Measured scan of single mutants.
Amino acid sequence: LQLFIKTLTGKTFTVEMEPSDTIENLKAKIQDKEGIPPDQQRLIFAGKQLEDGRTLSDYNIQKESTLHLVL
């Protein structure tokens, strides 16, 4: 599923993930694309901070959802 990642600077980029992927996987993918170390990434969806060990489906993140990346 394609997700939109929006940064505080207003930049938006996309990543391609599976619902079974963990937040950790997502942070690694963001590191590949943007060079931001996972330990500096905080991801927010629907007002909640996402925890590394959980999956996208745990948070009911669907295709074309927008996640906010806070550094």
Rank of each mutant, 00 (worst) to 15 (best):
L1H: 07
L1C: 03
L1Q: 05
L1G: 06
L1T: 04
L1I: 14
L1R: 04
Q2Y: 10
Q2V: 12
Q2L: 14
Q2I: 12
Q2D: 08
L3F: 07
L3R: 00
F4K: 11
F4G: 03
F4M: 11
F4E: 07
I5F: 03
I5Q: 00
I5W: 00
I5G: 00
I5T: 00
K6D: 05
K6L: 10
K6P: 01
K6S: 10
K6A: 10
K6H: 09
K6I: 13
K6N: 07
T7V: 10
T7F: 14
T7Y: 15
T7C: 04
T7Q: 12
T7S: 08
T7H: 09
T7A: 06
L8H: 15
L8R: 14
L8K: 15
L8W: 13
T9I: 08
T9Q: 14
T9D: 14
T9S: 12
G10A: 05
G10D: 06
G10M: 06
G10E: 05
G10L: 05
G10V: 03
G10C: 03
G10W: 03
K11P: 07
K11A: 10
K11L: 11
K11T: 10
T12H: 08
T12A: 07
T12L: 12
T12I: 13
F13E: 01
F13K: 01
F13G: 01
F13R: 02
T14K: 11
T14P: 08
T14C: 04
T14D: 06
T14L: 15
T14A: 11
T14H: 12
T14Q: 13
T14Y: 08
V15T: 03
V15S: 01
V15Q: 02
V15I: 14
E16A: 12
E16Y: 15
E16F: 15
M17H: 04
M17Y: 14
M17S: 08
M17T: 07
M17K: 01
M17P: 02
E18M: 13
E18Y: 14
P19K: 08
P19E: 12
P19D: 13
P19N: 15
P19L: 13
P19M: 11
S20Q: 09
S20G: 12
S20I: 07
D21K: 05
D21S: 10
D21A: 08
T22I: 06
T22R: 06
T22N: 05
T22H: 05
T22E: 02
I23K: 00
I23E: 00
I23M: 03
I23L: 05
E24H: 08
E24Y: 13
E24D: 10
E24R: 10
N25E: 15
N25Q: 12
N25T: 09
L26E: 00
L26M: 05
L26C: 02
L26F: 02
L26D: 00
L26V: 08
L26T: 03
L26I: 09
K27I: 02
K27R: 07
K27D: 00
K27E: 01
K27V: 01
K27H: 02
K27P: 00
A28M: 15
A28Q: 15
A28C: 04
A28E: 08
K29V: 13
K29N: 05
K29W: 07
I30C: 02
I30T: 01
Q31F: 13
Q31E: 10
Q31M: 13
Q31I: 02
Q31R: 15
Q31C: 04
Q31S: 15
D32N: 08
D32I: 08
D32M: 14
D32Y: 09
D32T: 11
K33Q: 13
K33A: 14
K33D: 04
K33T: 12
K33I: 12
K33M: 15
E34A: 15
E34C: 05
E34I: 11
E34L: 15
G35C: 03
G35Y: 03
I36N: 03
I36D: 02
I36H: 12
I36K: 02
P37N: 08
P37R: 09
P37T: 07
P38V: 15
P38I: 15
P38M: 14
P38K: 13
D39N: 14
D39L: 12
D39R: 15
D39C: 06
D39I: 12
Q40P: 02
Q40Y: 07
Q41K: 01
Q41W: 04
Q41M: 14
Q41D: 01
Q41R: 01
R42G: 05
R42L: 13
R42A: 06
R42H: 14
R42C: 05
R42I: 12
R42M: 11
R42Q: 11
R42K: 12
L43Y: 05
L43F: 05
L43H: 01
L43E: 00
L43W: 03
L43R: 00
I44Q: 06
I44V: 10
I44N: 05
I44P: 00
F45V: 04
F45Y: 12
F45P: 00
F45R: 03
A46I: 06
A46V: 06
A46W: 10
A46M: 14
G47S: 06
G47K: 04
G47A: 04
G47N: 07
G47W: 05
K48F: 08
K48M: 13
K48I: 15
K48S: 07
K48G: 07
K48D: 06
K48A: 10
Q49N: 11
Q49C: 05
Q49K: 09
L50R: 00
L50H: 00
L50C: 03
L50Q: 00
L50G: 01
E51Q: 11
E51V: 07
E51W: 04
E51K: 06
E51M: 12
D52A: 07
G53E: 08
G53M: 08
G53C: 04
G53P: 07
R54E: 04
R54K: 14
R54C: 04
R54W: 11
R54G: 08
R54F: 14
T55Q: 11
T55D: 03
T55R: 13
T55L: 09
T55P: 06
T55N: 06
T55S: 14
L56S: 01
L56E: 00
L56K: 00
L56I: 13
L56G: 02
L56V: 06
S57T: 15
S57M: 11
S57G: 11
D58M: 05
D58E: 08
D58T: 05
D58S: 13
D58L: 02
D58K: 03
D58Q: 07
Y59A: 03
Y59L: 05
Y59D: 01
N60R: 07
N60H: 10
N60W: 05
N60G: 15
N60V: 05
I61T: 03
I61P: 03
I61D: 02
I61E: 03
I61N: 02
I61C: 01
I61S: 02
I61V: 07
Q62D: 11
Q62V: 15
Q62T: 12
Q62P: 12
Q62F: 13
Q62R: 09
K63L: 07
K63Q: 12
K63T: 13
K63Y: 11
E64C: 05
E64P: 05
E64Y: 15
E64S: 09
E64T: 10
E64F: 15
E64A: 09
E64L: 10
E64H: 15
S65Y: 07
T66W: 07
T66F: 07
T66G: 03
T66M: 07
T66Q: 07
T66H: 15
T66I: 12
L67W: 02
L67E: 02
H68V: 10
H68Q: 09
H68T: 10
L69Y: 02
L69I: 06
L69K: 00
V70I: 07
V70N: 06
L71K: 10
L71R: 09
L71Y: 12
L71C: 04
L71I: 14
